[in-house]
Computed example of a mutant assay.
Amino acid sequence: MTVWNDQVIIVTGGSRGIGYETARCLVGAGARVLLVARDPVATANAAATLSQNGPGEAHGLAHTLTGCPEDGEAVCRAAFQQYGRITGLVNCAGGASVGTPLGLDWRRWQEDFTVKFWGYLSLMRAVVPYLRQVGGGAIVNVAGVTGKDPNPRLAAATTINGALRGLTKILADEVAPWQIRVVNVNPGATETALLLQMAEGYARLDQISPDQALVRMRQTPRGRLTRPEDIARLIRFLLSDEAGMITGTSVDIDGGIHRGPA
């Protein structure tokens, strides 16, 4: 059984959406969380709100992922200085630019890879030595179901999430002897502020209104879209001892919306 007040977990993208809900879920269980996001004010406010509602606590770190190894090193160093140990990492930064392989602006390709692939990788590489110090731990990457069910209108996300699937598998093998697990979580469209941005992008491509795009996006076998709290609870489970034999794989949480093989 996981003793959450012994857990120190880094959560990136933690000032809003899935990242914030994940941090809230972990703090609510008693964990200590280093909440990482770009905006200093939003990050500080989110951490303060979470700490006030305990029973765990959160500390905010304003940091922009630039795609360099130093990013992960700086974040892990800050977590260790704050709490003296690290037991888990949740990579949850980045968005989903709408665009086709030829139509998406080159700069957007680069920006998305910088945050969601190189940023994730830098943090995973940096956190492993800290997890080894405490005898193991878990890394959870919030990827996306497009990595297994390609979406031509989410070309960058499809490519990045597919790359994360491969990276997760081979990294999980490498760190398994140190009792470290690596797992992807694959949301589909989720009820966050990002959903509205995606709807606007879809509307431009399909020449429909954003409201019409939202109606299409919300049509799932479960009758609703996944909510951030659904994903947060899954991540908390995957970080826990109860998920001790889950590693090197991806777990979909999309209400059955993707049409690829299970």
Rank of each mutant, 00 (worst) to 15 (best):
L121G: 02
D211M: 11
I139G: 14
N45R: 09
G54T: 06
G84L: 13
G84E: 14
A46H: 06
G223Q: 10
G54Q: 13
P221S: 04
A176I: 03
Q82C: 13
V11I: 13
V183D: 11
G30E: 09
L194D: 09
R77A: 15
S51L: 06
V175M: 09
W4S: 11
Y202C: 07
G60P: 10
C92Q: 01
P55H: 14
M1G: 15
K169T: 08
F237I: 09
V11W: 12
K169P: 07
A93Y: 01
L123D: 03
V215S: 12
T247Y: 05
D39V: 01
V142L: 13
R132V: 11
G135N: 02
D173M: 10
F80L: 15
I231N: 05
V41D: 01
V36S: 04
D71G: 00
G13W: 01
A189K: 08
D206L: 15
F80V: 15
T2E: 10
A58Q: 05
F117D: 01
V140K: 00
V90R: 07
R236W: 06
R38W: 00
G19P: 12
D105G: 09
M217Y: 00
L196H: 15
A46D: 02
W109E: 08
C76N: 02
A29Q: 01
A155P: 13
P129C: 12
L131M: 12
L195S: 09
V41S: 00
A96L: 02
A42L: 11
V251F: 10
N151T: 07
N45D: 13
N141H: 05
Q207T: 08
R165H: 14
R85Y: 12
G144K: 07
R77D: 03
R204Y: 00
G255F: 11
E70W: 01
P221W: 05
R108A: 14
L35V: 06
L34H: 02
F113C: 08
E21G: 05
R233C: 12
P129V: 05
T192E: 12
I246H: 09
G166P: 08
G30L: 01
C25D: 12
I231R: 00
G28Q: 03
V215Y: 04
Q197A: 14
D6W: 01
P101M: 09
H258Q: 14
P101S: 09
C92K: 03
S122M: 00
V98A: 06
N91G: 02
G119P: 03
A163Q: 08
T87A: 08
T43K: 05
W106M: 11
Q212V: 08
L154I: 01
A42T: 04
G244M: 04
D6E: 15
A143C: 07
W106I: 13
P221C: 06
